[in-house]
Nucleic acid binder design. Sequence first.
DNA 1: GATGAATGAGATTTCATTCAT
DNA 2: TATGAATGAAATCTCATTCAT
Lengths: 200, 200, 200, 200
Amino acid sequence: MPARAQTAAAAPASPKRTAILEAALARFAESGVNGVAVPDIAARAEVGTGTIYRYFDSKEALVNALFQAEKARIEGYLTTEVAPGDDPRAGFNNFWQRMMDFALENPRSFRFLELQDHRPYLDKDSLALEKKVLQRRVKASQQLQQQGVFRDDLRAEIIMAIVWGALVNLIKAQQAGYISLSESDIEGARDACWRVCAGH
Amino acid sequence: MPARAQTAAAAPASPKRTAILEAALARFAESGVNGVAVPDIAARAEVGTGTIYRYFDSKEALVNALFQAEKARIEGYLTTEVAPGDDPRAGFNNFWQRMMDFALENPRSFRFLELQDHRPYLDKDSLALEKKVLQRRVKASQQLQQQGVFRDDLRAEIIMAIVWGALVNLIKAQQAGYISLSESDIEGARDACWRVCAGH
Amino acid sequence: MPARAQTAAAAPASPKRTAILEAALARFAESGVNGVAVPDIAARAEVGTGTIYRYFDSKEALVNALFQAEKARIEGYLTTEVAPGDDPRAGFNNFWQRMMDFALENPRSFRFLELQDHRPYLDKDSLALEKKVLQRRVKASQQLQQQGVFRDDLRAEIIMAIVWGALVNLIKAQQAGYISLSESDIEGARDACWRVCAGH
Amino acid sequence: MPARAQTAAAAPASPKRTAILEAALARFAESGVNGVAVPDIAARAEVGTGTIYRYFDSKEALVNALFQAEKARIEGYLTTEVAPGDDPRAGFNNFWQRMMDFALENPRSFRFLELQDHRPYLDKDSLALEKKVLQRRVKASQQLQQQGVFRDDLRAEIIMAIVWGALVNLIKAQQAGYISLSESDIEGARDACWRVCAGH
DNA sequence: GATGAATGAGATTTCATTCAT
DNA sequence: TATGAATGAAATCTCATTCAT
């Protein structure tokens, strides 16, 4: 059996299960979790309504499984092994570009994760996962501070919150049609955020 | 205290109406728009269910009235007359502090506005108001660019999106309990964002 | 105190009471009893909602009072003293014309009485009144049979049901816009109904 | 037995759908459309409340479907092919008898159709159907006039309105318990109505 | 007496979930 | 295992009636 990216919950992959998760993502991204009825998802996944309940205990469970899967997906996309000698600035640029690429290639995933209406559905595991992901990012920032790359007059959590908030808001503004990001906009924003992180 | 903007919709204030809006804000901030039934709001406002429908045509209309009122409130809070000779850096610091104060004093308002699950309820007026508010902020940024205060190698929309996104995410992280912002955190974050805006 | 036409229930006349009954008639004729809310009637009568409940115990009581008043009105309109020597054919023509005139002059009264959606509201008194009115008409037919004017191979009730049904349906068809009744249509219909009643 | 007209709306028959329509007819005939709540119908049909909404978009849609079905049913019952050589008087007698039979066999259908409180619910299709049915009857009368069977000093619409009004009122009076129709009453009424139609 | 804002029981409708096939 | 028709609890909304002013 091939090694498989660990999905958050130990859940057997299967074509139907995958189809359901994809359909749910598509519909949730369009209309929000509350705006989508379970039979809608079934129709989009081309399975029977009851089949969804064979793979997920409830709509809530489906939302959580999807949340955890997408959270894992974006994390997998963003995470890179950093070798000791790598140029930190190039690493930051790389991270920035990956995130932009992810949002461009997976707009539905991005929308679903940033749409906040799944929040009342999230269970302990999902919330724990979210916390873990945040902590991992904070830890990375702290390392960069210790290496003298990031300025240390600002707590790592604060740096992270600023950069992540900026990044997410740029993408949301673009998806909402408020702005359109050119290559140079993206680079300019990236450099501006670098000024947030990096010392004088 | 900042000048208060005129309440968005031309609706006669009345104690019951006010109580309903307050109750709705409290409940929506807690559980999301979709997680709150109209009788819940009525109970919290200590009015009959039917009374809500005397003041608002529907739950949707209530959400829109609340959205517009809170949007106007935060705008009123943030907006200041800028005299030509004012120090731009002090103005930025002032803006930053006002926003932090607003979030501290009106956590429910902030949560409601940033909770995205009202989006499917928003009508043309609400969306237009949101756009107007954004445009006003962009215009302010453009002026600062023209005055040579903000760097001009980054479009004003981009600057705005970064700073606003950062600000909102800091507050959300605090409200979610992920971080706790001290005075110096707030000042540090403010200065970091100033580095986003201001030239070299 | 002036002599006053006996309203079915012993109810004190008063300007407000009259205004309420008129408003109710107007609105019921437009939208049906079920399609009209009590505050609508109050608005049309230019009185407070509560005032209606000073004059009538309930919406049901109002419907009954109106039913009885209008039933009495149409009866008063149709009833004539018949002197022994009067020409029976002229009497019939007269009755026919009165009914047509009534429907023309009081379209709302006619519509309300023929609209059937008040039926579930009617109380014992209203139903008794309706029965009494019918019996009076049957009795008149019987007298005409005894006088040899109406044919006696058909029970008086049957004759009445036919003529009244025809008359009402003609007026309803006109009010619904299905037909438009000219003078000669009315006379032709009258003569056709005379053929129902009169012998050989 | 008369040829049955195609069910008005192109809706797939199904046991549940049929049960719902039957239950609705029974309850509406008893208490009027406004006097019956949807769960009442569901209980009578022995289905869940939600099931009604699987088959009909709304209570209004259910009323219209029922109206159209019953209108089609009575039309199918009344309509016969007339061969050129048929005796017109026998045809009239036959029509009369069919209508009486229908009312006897389908008292609820008759009551529902004559109860006017469905009127505010009727949609364009239902009103168009009603008009079509009326026009068909008028046309039949006109043909009889052209054949010299019906007198031509009275417009066909007027003849129809009289005869139909008489017929309906007889049945209503019987259903209301005001009169009881014997065989000879029915024949006498029929012959009286023939005198309305037929010449000289 | 007159008012009309307030009420809450009850109506219509939705949708997450079940279960017979 | 897969299905989707059926369900009924719960949501939104209406309106006859009350009662403090």
